[in-house]
Amino acid sequence: MSMEILNEQVVTAWVLEHPAHFQLLAPFIRKGSKNDLLIITTRIECLNMYNNSENYLPKREVVFVERPFGKNKNKFKTIFTMIKRRNKVKKALKLRQKRIPIQRIIVMGASLELFSAKSAKIPQRIYISDTEIHHLAHKLALKSATDVILPNYWREDLDNNFLKKCENKKINIIRHNKIHAEMRNYSKNNIPNNKIICRKLKGGGSHDKDEIIPINVALNLIKKDLEYFNEDIEHNTPWELCNLISNYSAAITQSTTFAAEASIQNVPTLLISKAERGFLSELKTRNAPLIQCKSINELDEKLQDWHELLKNE
């Protein structure tokens, strides 16, 4: 199975919550209808992707929404932002249904929009995920999704019975074999430099705040030059970040997505994170050059393993 369902020529609302969502969904959006709607979060990296999207995304009507989660948002602010966002999207979708009806909505993890779409009577509501531990998003999706797209390597031991609940609710489940990070065309540089690319996270996400491990201790032990492409920093060529990885001899990061993008391109990668994901297990099964450090206590050992990978390149 694959994501061919996304190629269907129907008027669609696309929710773009994260830079990786832009990368994955852009090819489908380009093939879509001129009447499609984009719903984009105002986090710095997403706005940067949108503002530099001339060669990547067609011109479409856009609704901008605030991200409910973040390091500086307490529970009250998060709930307030969620309600405000849900109502804003619901209003926009209901207005569209009177003018040019939307036939489906596609979200990746941002299941809040599924509620709004259901209220606006959008018939097909597709939820895509590769993040088993995103339990809040799954819980919301169970109430509003008509279809769920999951990879075959999905780990049910992490998903709080989400897949079983989908089956019980008779939600249409579509499976595929691909890792999200490999569902794009990379422009590989065959002569990498001797530097290391690093991506640090701010933390504060709804699902990953407990996975973050401080990375500076490891960075202080690295003797090669480091170049940073950190979360929530504007980059000159945001659409090319995944391609820039292959310019480097190695990668170090707290981001599971970035780790997948690097190791898929055969760049020796050190992921410093407690994260458990099906796609990380799949990468290890494929013998990708990925070393994961899940605690500061094992840092020396994992750094040594990573250096061994570098020697073999």
Rank of each mutant, 00 (worst) to 15 (best):
E4I: 13
E8Y: 07
V11K: 08
A13Q: 10
H21V: 07
A26L: 02
P27E: 06
P27S: 03
K31W: 03
G32M: 06
T42Y: 10
I44A: 11
N48S: 06
E54T: 09
L57V: 03
P58T: 04
K59P: 02
K71L: 13
K71T: 01
N72Y: 13
K73A: 00
N74D: 15
N74I: 11
K77H: 13
I79A: 15
I83R: 14
K88S: 09
R96K: 15
Q97V: 09
K98V: 14
I102H: 04
Q103R: 14
I106D: 14
I106S: 13
S111V: 12
L112G: 02
L114R: 07
L114Q: 03
L114S: 06
S116D: 09
A117M: 05
K118Y: 09
K118M: 14
A120Y: 13
P123D: 09
Q124W: 04
I126E: 11
T131F: 11
I133D: 05
H135N: 15
L136K: 14
A137K: 06
H138R: 12
H138A: 03
L140C: 10
S144F: 15
D147M: 11
V148P: 05
I149D: 05
N152C: 09
N152H: 13
N152P: 04
Y153Q: 04
K165H: 10
R175P: 00
H176L: 05
N177L: 06
K178Q: 12
I179K: 07
I179F: 03
A181R: 10
E182N: 04
R184P: 05
R184H: 11
S187Y: 14
S187V: 09
K188E: 02
N189H: 00
N189V: 00
I191S: 00
N194V: 00
K195P: 02
K200H: 08
G203D: 07
G204H: 08
G205P: 09
H207L: 05
D208A: 12
P214L: 12
I215K: 01
N220T: 11
L221I: 02
K223Q: 05
K224T: 11
D225Y: 01
E227A: 02
Y228V: 03
I233P: 04
I233E: 15
H235I: 09
T237Q: 03
P238E: 08
P238S: 07
E240G: 08
Y248Q: 02
Y248C: 01
A251P: 14
T256D: 12
T257M: 09
F258N: 03
E261N: 10
A262P: 00
N266Y: 02
N266P: 03
V267W: 03
V267L: 01
V267R: 00
P268C: 01
P268F: 01
T269W: 08
S273F: 04
E276F: 07
R277Q: 15
S281K: 12
R286N: 13
P289C: 02
I291A: 00
K294H: 07
I296C: 02
N297C: 14
Q304D: 11
Q304E: 12
Q304I: 08
D305A: 08
D305Y: 12
H307K: 14
E308D: 12
K311D: 00
N312V: 11
